[in-house]
Design a protein around this nucleic acid. Structure first.
Lengths: 317, 317
DNA sequence: AGAGTCCAATACTTCCTACCTATGCCACCC
DNA sequence: GGGTGGCATAGGTAGGAAGTATTGGACTCT
């Protein structure tokens, strides 16, 4: 039935659809017009339905079924080019080192997971990581000195392709001997004025704006106090009693510190895989496609034939 | 380069990989062993790298580059079967009516969007909708008397494929003349005891559990009061002063009612496209694939060649 | 109405190549 | 050393993809 359909046919179909006419398609394909005609007729015979409606002088037009086939044909032809380009690069050991940026505020486990998955897919390819602040990373993505990054959301640059990969709770970080530590949940109004350690707003303006917005929703205007550039400094400042801080619940804490969730809010930190839309790294389209389809935690080699299903858990977030 | 790669080659590669040996693959394909050998050699010559390492008596094994190609080959061969089966069904007007369930609590705009998108992709195919409660819908999905559904999350049945399609804020529904309506944001502790109109817990136990959990997080044990089976009844009860209710912000309100957001919480209602994993409807795999890749709002015919990017907005939720 | 045009389909030929059979070659094993 | 399992090579054949030449249908313009 469809077993006789070859890539050749798909190329013809797409050319015809683009040219709106068999003759023009034939020229584009460096074939004679009858060659195209015959192939398409033969194909339509095999599959059992017409792809195009012939309108004589008005050219040809895809049928509804043809539309479906054409859409698929285009993507599958693009995939063929892409896959073999990548595979050839893998074989030659020419997959260029993937230069990956990350903000110090993302959960390091994500980087590890990514690295593992990536090296299973691209065995001979290196990854180098550069940790910095979001603004800097995004600038380097634009400048093509980084290929991709794992960053906290939101990312509002229109030039970036953003794929969410994780979502975790924000909790209050405090000294273990803080009186508040006796409570299992904290009241947002009670702790808000004490939160005085922030990520430097300039290092990720949109994330800061988001935070301000979150506080505003609770009716609390925040006064920016101390700001830091990385989680270690947060912990140091909290320990030295400069104030409380909001941190990712996955953050591994120094001794003497603890965290508590906040009652009444559901503040989460979303983390995303980010790459410039016009980035050149050959593996990127492939990585993005799979991240989109299967998420970060499952981007890995699997037993044959198995299809991973999205995990329901994520929906509970 | 890769232009000479045909589906025939991919079939051979997959058969070889499955049989671990050219000879067995040849038998399975009803070809002679040299035919396979030659095709693979020719292919490897064209693309410029080997797909298999020949280990003599120990059979063959894919190279790293080969692994990548094989993975793609399998999916693309499956797609070919699927696409032509669907396209043929479209042509014959044989795409069976899609029986779609929905909970009365989902935003009706989602159903409209879905229906529009669907009828653009499958022009001759009907959709029939059955509105009911989640528990009932899920049961009917299992019983194969429905093909798919749009339901509020969470869905915990392991037998269901769940694809999130929308996420919206939960707000408090009240009479327009309620004293609280003078506030732009409500305090969760203040309104919690007054929320006395709920969706019937039995109609969607996991969603109810989720709600209870949300309240517990704010330190409020909820006492189940009045329960209803649809949003119209919610509005009626609120109007008749039975209590306040949590509703979707997209809900269109009767006159005399209004809604207000709650400060300090970020309660959202996620809605998902749900189908039984062993559902038979021919169009489902196709629909799911596209929902996963492009989401519900963009599942529609687009100008040629354009690729839709996921919208950054969603990340801000 | 008739000539001109645009385009797909048909008829027939040519030539390529996928496949076949037969055989060779290599590695491993009793 | 002979047997065996497995891929590669050689040479022939037939099916089919592509080419040339031509027909046929639909529309346009004079």
């Amino acid at each position: 039935m469809s077993d006789s359909v070859e890539f050749r046919h798909l190329e013809y179909l797409v050319a015809i659809d683009e040219g709106k006419n068999f003759t023009r398609a034939a020229e584009k394909l460096y074939r004679s017009q009858p060659a195209i005609s015959q192939q398409v007729r033969g194909l339509e015979g095999d599959i059992g339905f017409p792809i195009f409606v012939r309108r004589g002088r008005d050219g040809v037009e895809p049928t509804p079924a043809g539309e479906l086939v054409l859409g698929w044909a285009r993507t599958v032809l693009a995939e063929r080019r892409e896959i073999f380009a990548i595979a050839r690069a893998i074989h030659r050991g020419e997959v260029p080192t993937l230069r990956m940026g990350f903000s110090s505020f993302v959960n390091p486990a994500l980087l590890t997971t990514f690295r593992q998955s990536f090296s299973e897919l691209f065995p001979k390819c290196e990854v180098v990581f550069s940790g910095s602040d979001s603004a800097q990373i995004i600038q380097r993505l634009s400048a093509q000195t980084l290929d991709c990054a794992i960053l906290p959301c939101p990312i509002d640059s229109k030039a970036m392709d953003v794929i969410p990969v994780a979502n975790s709770q924000r909790v209050v970080c405090m000294r273990a001997d803080d009186p508040l530590a006796s409570q299992t949940h904290l009241d947002v109004h009670e702790i808000a004025p004490r939160i005085r350690v922030f990520r430097d707003p300039e290092l990720h303006p949109s994330a800061h704006a988001h935070l301000v917005h979150s506080f505003a929703e609770v009716g609390i205007p925040i006064s920016l106090a101390n700001s830091v550039a990385n989680p270690a400094d947060i912990q140091w400042m909290v320990k030295e009693n400069y104030g409380l801080a909001l941190v990712d619940e996955a953050l591994s804490l120094d001794s003497g510190l603890t965290t508590r969730p906040i009652a009444g809010v559901n503040w989460t930190a979303q983390t995303a895989f980010v790459a410039s839309k016009d980035s050149q790294h050959i593996a990127l389209p492939f990585i993005q496609k799979y991240l989109r389809q299967e998420g970060l935690t499952v981007l890995r080699k699997r037993p044959r034939g198995e299809r991973i299903r999205p995990r329901q858990l994520e929906l509970l977030a």
